[in-house]
Design a protein around this nucleic acid. Structure first.
Lengths: 228, 228
DNA sequence: CTAACTATTTAGGCATACCTAATTAAGTCC
DNA sequence: GGACTTAATTAGGTATGCCTAAATAGTTAG
C-alpha cells in the first residue's frame, strides 16, 4: 500500500505554515493544535489532519509528534517566510504605489500573497527600492529568507511612563489600526506614554495629534523601542 | 426536497463564464459543451455539470437548454465583463507600471483577475489614467459593462496585399506574441502585408524591423484595420 | 491512585470540481 | 426509416479541505 501523493502547494497549506510561524514566535517553540485552530478559524480536527499531511510529505514542512505540537521544518520555514515576504511587499506596494488607506492593505495582501509570481514579487520589490520594512513597521524578509531580529517590545509591557519610538503596529485589527493612525501612532513616531492603570494607557504622538486612551488589549498591538 | 444552494462565486465559475463570453463572439451565439470543454481543458461531462449549476442558480448566469448549447444571461454577461475588465486592467498595469514583457502579462493577469478587490481595480484604473485599451490593443470594458464594438478584422481574412494598421493581437500564445513583438507587430503599428500563398503571409512593420513570415494560424492572432 | 477534565486525534460526512465509463439523443447516410 | 456516428448527458468515483461526533491520551485534583 503506497501512500498517496498529495499536493501541498495550496493556499490552505500556506496559511497553516504562516500560522505556525506566527504562533511559534522568534524561539520557534512548538505550537498546539488548538492554538492553530483558533488562529485559522477552523476546527481542531481539521488542524490535525493538515498537520499530518504537512509532516508526512516527501519533503516534510513541519516536525510533528502526535499530541506534542508542531514546529516548522527548514522547508516549512522557507515557505512561510516566502509568503510573509509576499505579504509585506504587497502591503508596502498597496500603500506606497496604489495609495491604499493603511487599514485596508492587510486584507488585500492576505488574498493576493498566494497568487503572485516570482516575477511580480521581484518587480514590486524593485519598484519600491528594495524596502526593508512594510508600512506597519514590520521587517520584510529578504529573498534569502533571512530576517533581522526584533529588539522592540510590546507597549503593553511598559510599566513606567516615558518617551518611546513606535517600532511597529499589528495589522490584525483594522479598526484599531485606523484609530491609531488617526492619532499619529505610526512607525517611527515619537510617543509619550502614560500608564493610567493596569488596564489603561494614554498615548500622545505630538502637538498636532489628540491624545489617545488605549486599553491593555490595544496596547498589545503596538511595539515600541527606546527613544534614542 | 429543496434544491441545495450552491455558491457560484468561484474562480471556476468565473472561467466558465469568461469562456462562454469569448466563444459566443460579438453576436453572443450559443456555445457547445465540447467547445467549452476544449477551451477550458476539462472533460465535457464537467462542462455539463457546471452549466447546470450556472443555469439553475437563484439568479441564473446562463441560459441553457440541454443539448442546445448555452449563452450568458444578463447577470452572466455582467460577471464575464467584470472579470474581463480585471484581466485587461491588470495586463495594462503589469505592462505599464511594473514593466513586464508583453508576453508575460497574460498568465499573471489570468491568475490575479479572480482575487483583486474593487478597490484594487479602481486604484490601478486611476493610476493608469482610465485606459481604454490594454497593451494587446483590446478594449477594456467600462465599469458599467459597456464595451465598444470591434471594427477590425483578422489578418488571416486578407486576400490582397496592402497596408494596414495593427488593431490588436491575441494574448493566448505567448511565444507567438513575443515573436510578433520582436518584429514590430504591435497595436497601432503600420503594417505592409503580403499574402504569399493560402497558407503564408509576410509582414513588414517598417524600416527598423525585419520582415516576418507567418503561417495562417499565426495570422489569425492579429487583427487589423484600414490604413487611414 | 483513580476520577474528571481538557486537548487531541480518529472516524465518518459534505461540498466543490474534477474525472471515466456508460447511456441517450440528434443528425446523417444509404 | 433504420443503422451509424458524434455530441452531450447521466452515473458513479476521486482529491481537497473543511465539518461534527466519538474515542483516547495526558494532566490535575481530591
Amino acid at each position: 500500500m503506497t501512500t498517496r501523493r498529495v499536493n501541498l502547494n495550496t493556499e490552505s497549506a500556506d496559511n497553516y505554515l504562516k500560522a505556525v510561524f506566527a504562533l511559534g514566535g522568534p524561539e520557534e517553540e512548538r505550537v498546539s493544535s488548538t492554538a492553530l485552530a483558533d488562529r485559522l478559524g477552523v476546527a481542531p480536527a481539521s488542524v490535525t489532519n493538515m498537520l499530518q499531511k504537512l509532516a508526512t510529505s516527501p519533503v516534510p514542512f513541519v516536525e510533528y509528534e502526535s499530541r506534542r505540537g508542531v514546529r516548522l521544518s527548514a522547508a516549512g520555514r522557507r515557505r512561510a517566510l516566502e509568503i510573509l515576504r509576499h505579504h509585506r511587499l504587497l502591503e508596502t506596494f498597496l500603500y506606497e504605489v496604489l495609495g491604499y488607506p493603511i487599514e485596508e492593505v492587510h486584507d488585500e495582501a492576505e488574498r493576493l500573497e498566494h497568487f503572485i509570481s516570482e516575477r511580480f514579487e521581484e518587480r514590486i520589490d524593485a519598484k519600491l527600492g528594495r524596502p526593508k520594512f512594510d508600512p506597519h513597521g514590520h521587517c520584510i524578509p529578504a529573498l534569502s529568507g533571512k530576517m533581522s531580529k526584533q529588539t522592540s517590545r510590546p507597549l503593553s509591557d511598559i510599566e513606567e511612563d516615558g518617551e518611546f519610538v513606535v517600532d511597529s503596529i499589528s495589522d490584525q485589527d483594522s479598526v484599531l489600526l485606523k484609530r491609531l493612525n488617526a492619532h499619529g501612532v505610526t512607525p517611527g513616531a515619537r510617543l509619550h506614554v502614560l500608564r493610567l492603570s493596569q488596564e489603561e494607557f494614554v498615548l500622545r504622538a505630538g502637538g498636532r495629534f489628540k491624545p489617545l486612551q488605549l486599553p491593555l488589549s490595544g496596547a498589545g498591538a503596538v511595539r515600541i523601542r527606546p527613544n534614542d
